[in-house]
Design a protein around this nucleic acid. Structure first.
Lengths: 244, 244
DNA sequence: TTCATATCGAGACCAGTGCTCTCGAATGGG
DNA sequence: CCCATTCGAGAGCACTGGTCTCGATATGAA
């Protein structure tokens, strides 16, 4: 794979640029990310950076992909660690992992789940990494379905008509077992979950809610129900069963 | 009020600047909003704008306040139009009005509900206008409470401990009748509602969900339940009763 | 080993930004 | 009517993203 010293050097410098840009992103936010500042910090001429990233947006895209991957990895390891025995427990674990990652890296979170920069539509390279989180959630629902504990949604079959052809292909992919109806529900739940997290990360709960862990857990439990995950055990035992 | 021709002229130019800035915001987004471009469009020297807004952030704040007020007004008129007879109907009306406003003005929505610009924390003038939407939601819950149809939340009284002192003061204000427990629930519901809207406005449902109206209504109905609003009539009649 | 070629970084440069300062002119109140 | 206040213009500063050219350097082939 390694062709020669030149390619190695090139890869190293490219990585250093991305790394330094990541540092600045974490410290100051995406708006303050400046190619020139990155170059300055690395002892490079500003123009030299353009040998590695054709423009600022491309550098930003690299960071976006990195953030999606990091968040996706956090969700996936939480899912793996929780096992498949108790879907509700897995659900809580994944949601908490996502929230924890977001609170620890607010700027990276804002980069991927904040307002999209105008005129910027996600390049194809981002859709894979971006789907890792929703697919982790799908995994939980499929585990519940496999265990036969997934709730059915009577009378909402007609809603499946509203799913786009692309999504239908995605959800009815070989390997996927999630019922289409549950998938539609899950899309809405996914959005609501990130509403909770965004409000907290962006400071909308400041001076309003102190016990954010509790409020989050409570809401996420409701979301689990909305997604078709039934409480384990009886009634109020759900919360403790979910691993508090 | 009008002191003289000079003040009138000053107010007019100030309004023109804000208006032109609003145009540019709607067209291009907040990131592209340039003091110089505004000045250019108005035939002013760039420096002249600084007589009216000390810096770019202040101009942006004026736009933020305007957006909060416009969205708040939309929510309030929806609430007023729906009347207080049927809380669930009011709930749907308010949520739909918010969503409609957001979809029609994506850039203004992003300005107030997207990622906060780094190092910018909301000036005090924004908190009033910003509370209009949540207070409209509170109004719906209070109407349900007054009608005696608000669900109780058994066993979640301890969560009230997590409410900050500020919020407690706010919610237990004279004139407010919402039970503290319901208020806590509503805060989470509020966040989830804006998660739904943000995902749609920011294009996260593109190529996934086609029938967004239906998915939104379905989720908002679940949120109503989560907020303690009980379905009117029996079971599946709720949707039609909610005014589809 | 020698040499042509491809790659690299530096530096000058451009257009644009937010913002400050100064200066002349208009204006309106006493 | 006159003088102080207000206004807009314009120059200028420090910064940004991005382009271009030009030497230096390393690489692969002869």
């Amino acid at each position: 794979m390694i062709r020669g010293a030149r390619e190695r050097a090139r890869a190293e410098v490219g990585a250093a640029i991305k790394e330094e840009a990541g540092r600045q992103l974490a410290a100051e936010g995406a708006a303050q990310l400046s190619l020139r500042a990155v170059a300055r910090e690395l002892g490079l001429a500003p123009s030299a950076v353009y040998r590695y990233f054709p423009n600022r947006d491309d550098l930003l895209t690299a960071l976006i992909v990195g953030a999606y991957d990091a968040l996706g990895a956090a969700a996936e390891t939480a899912l793996a660690d929780a096992g498949t025995a108790d879907p509700l427990r897995s659900w809580m674990a994944v949601c908490r992992a996502i929230r924890g990652w977001a609170l620890a890296r607010p700027h990276e979170y804002a980069l991927i789940y904040g307002s999209p920069v105008p005129g910027y539509d996600a390049p194809p390279d981002t859709v894979g990494p971006a789907s890792r989180v929703p697919l982790a959630l799908v995994g939980v629902v499929e585990a519940a379905d496999a265990a036969g504990t997934l709730a059915s949604f009577p009378g909402s079959g007609q809603q499946d008509e509203g799913v786009s052809a692309d999504a239908r292909r995605l959800f009815q992919d070989p390997g996927r077992t999630i019922p289409l109806t549950a998938a539609v529900r899950l899309v809405a739940v996914w959005a609501q979950l990130f509403g909770l997290i965004s409000f907290e990360v962006f400071g909308r709960f400041d001076r309003i809610i102190d016990a954010r862990d509790d409020v989050f857990d409570r809401a996420v439990l409701d979301l689990a129900h909305q997604a078709g995950l039934r409480p384990t055990g009886t009634g109020s035992a759900a919360e403790s069963a979910a691993g508090r």
